[in-house]
Design a protein around this nucleic acid. Structure first.
Lengths: 187, 187
DNA sequence: CGAGCACTTGATCTATGTCAACGGTAGTGG
DNA sequence: CCACTACCGTTGACATAGATCAAGTGCTCG
């Protein structure tokens, strides 16, 4: 059934920001997300994709393939990502438990990103994408809009407002301001 | 630390609609939700409770107590509920896998309840609470508002509108219309 | 019988959506 | 090298879904 050799299909893989990782309904295997952020979408009957969930480093992706053989969601990289095959080595009951607990917590985080004032939602998402050192690489305005259930024009206005307040500072590359790379002042 | 005997604390329990099931941060054990719907809240530093997630029949509740010893969320029954101790009997790797997959799907459902038009969100939630026979018992307008990130006045208006369109029909009990029990016409 | 909820409904306000125009950048093909 | 296209992001003007504020009803429970 696998068209690629077992070794090739089961070694760690890298994806660039924006890359499609897999498509809902197609066959595949589970992965652990080692680095980066992934966007998961459901595909409605009419073919419309709708944002469904986020996966961040440590999350397990496509575990349902062990049950149904196919992915439930479509996955797209929002940042550079590294995936490694899962399960790793011995079937570990405890690691499954950890994954279940963190999936439940992830759901709560997602819910928080979709409620309250627009400014707070965007700030919440920015913190999710920030590394420890106050550096942030954001996805496109449209992706942020899909995640927070706002419009990309609103996201654009809010990010500009954060720049004016010096909460976000765009990084200069060769003299020009990046639109997605910032340093984040802890407010 | 447990004030009740081990047997009592580890047998199935029933909760009435609105009952508090456990509090975030307190010690406890995991449960499987056999029947009903539960609301999970996070408690912010300032003591404000915020809606975090839903659990429906089949879900595992408080599995993180096996890792940290305490509940992450506070749980409140939105309908009559029945909980049974988890894990049931043998530690079953496959049942954990099923739980993980359904937790990830639940997150996507929750996300859908918090995006798009108010009417669609409320309809989505109503379908979640409907049994197979088209009977629905809803939680309070305030609970629906918290779940969908709308205001209770908006929920009230939308439910009235669904009644006028005969999508929801309040059940009459002793001649008076119930405010939370309906039959749902499949639209 | 009074207090406290849960719910309904009207009037008004506002945060965000919608529509439209425009600029920058990357890629592509001649 | 220069069109040319396709995105992505920004900004302004205006519209509106839903929030907010306010008043009132009816039920339940002590």
């Amino acid at each position: 059934m696998d068209s690629i050799s077992p070794e090739a299909s089961r070694s760690a893989q890298e994806f660039a920001s924006g890359a499609k990782i897999h498509t809902g309904g197609t066959a595949g295997t589970p992965w652990r997300l080692q680095r980066g952020v992934i966007r998961l979408d459901t595909t409605a009957a009419d073919g419309q994709a709708a944002f469904a969930s986020l996966a961040i480093a440590g999350d397990i992706l496509g575990c349902e393939t062990l049950l149904f053989g196919a992915y439930t969601f479509s996955a797209t990289a929002l940042t550079e990502c590294r995936l490694s095959p899962w399960p790793e080595g011995v079937a570990d009951r405890d690691s499954l438990l950890v994954s279940l607990a963190s999936a439940q917590r992830r759901a709560a985080d997602l819910v928080a990103l979709r409620g309250g004032q627009a400014m707070d939602r965007v700030l919440g998402l920015i913190r999710l994408f920030a590394d420890g050192a106050g550096q942030v690489i954001l996805p496109t305005r449209q992706d942020i809009a899909d995640i927070t259930d706002l419009r990309f024009e609103t996201i654009s206005r809010i990010i500009k407002q954060l720049e004016r307040r010096h909460i976000l500072s765009p990084i200069r590359i060769a003299g020009v301001h990046a639109t997605r790379s910032f340093t984040l002042a802890d407010c």
